[in-house]
Write a protein that binds this DNA or RNA. Sequence first.
DNA 1: TCGCATCAGTGATAGCCTCTAACTGTCGCC
DNA 2: GGCGACAGTTAGAGGCTATCACTGATGCGA
Lengths: 216, 216
Amino acid sequence: MGTTTESPRQRYRAQVQEEIKQHAWEQIATAGASALSLNAIAKQMGMSGPALYRYFANRDELITALIRDAYQSLADTIRSAAAGGADLRGLAQAMRVWALEDPQRYLLIYGTPVPGYQAPDDTRQLANDVMTKLLEAAGGDGLGALPASALGEHLAASDAGWATAYPAEPERLHRAVVFWTRLHGVLSLELAGHFDGMGFDPARVYAAEVEAVAGH
Amino acid sequence: MGTTTESPRQRYRAQVQEEIKQHAWEQIATAGASALSLNAIAKQMGMSGPALYRYFANRDELITALIRDAYQSLADTIRSAAAGGADLRGLAQAMRVWALEDPQRYLLIYGTPVPGYQAPDDTRQLANDVMTKLLEAAGGDGLGALPASALGEHLAASDAGWATAYPAEPERLHRAVVFWTRLHGVLSLELAGHFDGMGFDPARVYAAEVEAVAGH
DNA sequence: TCGCATCAGTGATAGCCTCTAACTGTCGCC
DNA sequence: GGCGACAGTTAGAGGCTATCACTGATGCGA
């Protein structure tokens, strides 16, 4: 593959960066992204604080790298589910498993953003990749008709690049958007613990929403 | 009303607490909840850092107070909309306006939680109040039938206190939950900026989801 | 193979933060 | 009018991000 020959130093650098991210994920999983501390990571790795700045210019850059990896992981999950022949329902299932596997990873992407933070372009690209895969699945066989609505037309009319592959299929666009927003609605509330103590099974709510989008 | 006679000191204390929260909201609106600094607030108010600890034992307690106020404000918004004769659609509109008015206030309640943070009981009560108001509106006139689904039965069967007023109305429970999760899905993605650059109008998506829940 | 440039990692430091402790001065209640 | 309660102060411990000047190892080209 296109692995441009790596110098030992580059290889080591990449390795350490990977290890840093590993520790960062552990911290995030237990204390949330806002509690992520470069200092603490450095100590865990047995080196002094400022050493980390050789690998990530600042805290934001590390978080950005984590966001990138999260998107990548989600895209991979969706891709492999689709490659395994999963339809829209299977895809929804795969996404839920992925989210529950590491709630903070999901929330890093789809959770509360820092007002100032601007995602770099390639991150937007990764988000778009995910959307494209949803669009592909949103046109599969075995899907019921969606109730009539003007939304599909609106989406088709105002397409700004996120659906260039299917510009003329309002129902597909509608289904993809609704798939995204509804599943995110259930998932994010579940992950944030807002269903705790309400006594019902979030999986059932999720499943019902999947059916509502996929049709009977 | 039951205003137990206030001493001047209590009055002053309450006033300062209110002023602190005011500054806190301004900070949160511009930099997010994770960037909230007691120190900075104190300086803005012309006093030294530790003085604030007379009013809030720690950072978490201040944030909890803000969360309480946010719930209260949302509950008031919903109540006054309902009192004004708004149906489920009107309620959805009022909620959207409330959310857009101050995105970080919405996200403080429904956004990414801090893993360690445990909401105090009265906060859970406030969340329940909101849910109860949704349940009331979810049984109004002029609502279409929801597609058949086992979710309503599940919700009715596993009721654990959040819907004691309407235990035997599966469709109402179903509608309330779906109202909540779907609108949150659209709203939270919009507020987090995930629709940016996609070229469609979030209000249209929101409206379509409202119609899908309220029926034609 | 040798020499040197590059780069990993260091301690010191500035400046921010939360939160505690000890102290002072003022306010209001009895 | 006096005293107790309480607001607000400074000092400081301990954490954080981030910069700087430095040391020492490493790997590359000559």
